[in-house]
C-alpha cells in the first residue's frame, strides 16, 4: 500500500471540492473493497477522502411513494429496513445473499455499486489485465475463467461485476443520484450506470472523475413476487456463479435480471417480455449473444434453470 494523505469531510460539496484539489484522490466509505485492493496496490490513491461524516445514511420516503437510500446506508441497515423488507424484498434478499455479516455492517450502498471485479487475474498484479493496467492484455481469456462473464464481454476483458445488490437494483429500475464539482447534481438510471468492457474495461461506470454518489432512489414498489436466487459453490460467503433477481406477477409477467454473467447486471426488456412463456424463452433471448468459455459454458444452463426455479417459486 502506497502512502496517502487522509482527510475527513462533512458535506458532499466539501468532498467533491477536496477531490478537485488533490491529485489521485479516492473517496472512502466502508473501505471493504478499496482497502482490499490498496493492499495489493491494484488501487493506489495518494489521497483518501473519508466521506463517512456526510449525513447520507438515511432512508426516506420519496413524494411519489418510492424510497431514497442514502449513499452511506450500510448494507445491513438497508436489508433490515422495514420498508425494504416489505416492499423491495428482492433488494433485501440480494443484500443478505452477499458477503458476510461483518462486511455488510461496514459496506455502503454506494460502495457496493462501485465494487470492482473479483476476476483472479485482476487480483494478481503479475498477470496482464486490461482493467488493472490498460493495454497489458487479458490473462483470463484462455485462462481459468469458471467464474467469469459469458455475455457482454470483449476481447479485452471477460470480468463480471460481483455485486448482488446491483442486480436487484436493476430490476427495481433504481436511479443513482450524484454530485460533481461545482455542486452539479444528476440522476443516472441504473440501466445507464454501468458500462460493458469493450476496449476500455478499466472504465466501469459512467460516473465522471470525482463524481460522488449521494443516494439511490427506488421508484414506487412493483407488485409481484420478489426473489433473489443466488447460486454458488459454497452455501454462504461466496460470489455468485449465477444469480437471478426477479419480480414476477401472478400472470407470469415480470422483471428479471441476472448476476454473475456479465460486466454489469444483465437485463433485457425484450427477453423479459417472454416471461409468461417460461424460463427457456427468456433465457434464449436474454443470453442469445453469449460467448462463454469452456470453463463457464455451464452458466447458460444454470441461468436458465435458476430462472425456471425462480418462476416456479413465484407461482407456487
Amino acid at each position: 500500500m502506497k502512502p496517502f494523505t487522509y482527510q475527513r469531510v462533512r458535506s458532499p460539496a466539501e468532498a467533491v471540492a477536496a477531490f478537485g484539489r488533490n491529485k489521485n484522490a479516492k473517496f472512502i466509505a466502508g473501505g471493504t473493497n478499496l482497502l482490499d485492493l490498496m493492499k495489493l496496490q491494484i488501487e493506489a490513491p495518494s489521497h483518501l477522502i473519508d466521506v463517512n461524516g456526510l449525513a447520507l445514511d438515511k432512508i426516506e420516503m420519496t413524494p411519489d411513494g418510492g424510497l431514497r437510500i442514502g449513499a452511506l446506508v450500510r448494507n445491513t441497515d438497508l436489508a433490515a429496513h422495514p420498508r425494504v423488507r416489505r416492499d423491495y424484498a428482492v433488494l433485501a434478499r440480494a443484500l443478505l445473499a452477499g458477503a458476510s455479516g461483518q462486511l455488510r455492517n461496514r459496506a455502503t450502498t454506494a460502495g457496493n455499486l462501485l465494487q470492482r471485479t473479483r476476476c483472479p487475474y485482476f487480483y494478481d498484479t503479475n498477470q496482464p489485465c486490461n482493467k488493472r493496467q490498460p493495454g497489458s492484455g487479458c490473462a483470463a481469456i484462455g485462462g481459468f475463467s469458471r467464474q467469469l462473464a459469458v455475455i457482454g464481454s470483449s476481447q479485452a476483458c471477460i470480468a463480471t461485476h460481483p455485486s448482488d445488490m446491483a442486480v436487484a437494483l436493476r430490476v427495481l429500475d433504481a436511479v443513482v443520484e450524484t454530485v460533481k464539482t461545482g455542486g452539479v447534481t444528476r440522476q443516472i438510471n441504473i440501466r445507464d450506470f454501468y458500462r460493458l468492457p469493450g476496449d476500455t474495461p478499466h472504465i466501469e461506470t459512467n460516473l465522471a472523475d470525482g463524481e460522488l454518489i449521494t443516494a439511490v432512489v427506488l421508484p414506487r414498489p412493483v407488485e409481484g413476487k420478489h426473489g433473489y436466487r443466488k447460486v454458488r459453490d459454497r452455501a454462504s460467503y461466496a460470489f455468485a456463479l449465477v444469480s437471478v433477481a426477479s419480480i414476477i406477477s401472478r400472470d407470469g409477467s415480470g422483471k428479471v435480471a441476472l448476476g454473475g454473467v456479465a460486466h454489469m447486471p444483465w437485463r433485457n426488456e425484450t427477453a423479459e417480455a417472454q416471461l409468461p412463456k417460461g424460463a427457456k424463452a427468456v433465457a434464449e433471448n436474454l443470453l442469445s449473444d453469449a460467448k462463454p468459455t469452456e470453463h463457464n459454458a455451464f452458466k447458460i444452463t444454470l441461468a436458465e434453470r435458476a430462472l425456471a426455479s425462480a418462476i416456479s417459486e413465484a407461482k407456487g
Partner: peptide, 16 residues
C-alpha cells in the same frame, strides 16, 4: 451463440 473456442482463438491471435 459463439462457440467457446472463438474467444480463445482471438486470444492466441492477439498474443501473436
Amino acid at each position: 451463440m459463439t462457440k467457446p473456442s472463438e474467444i480463445e482463438l482471438s486470444r492466441r491471435q492477439l498474443l501473436a
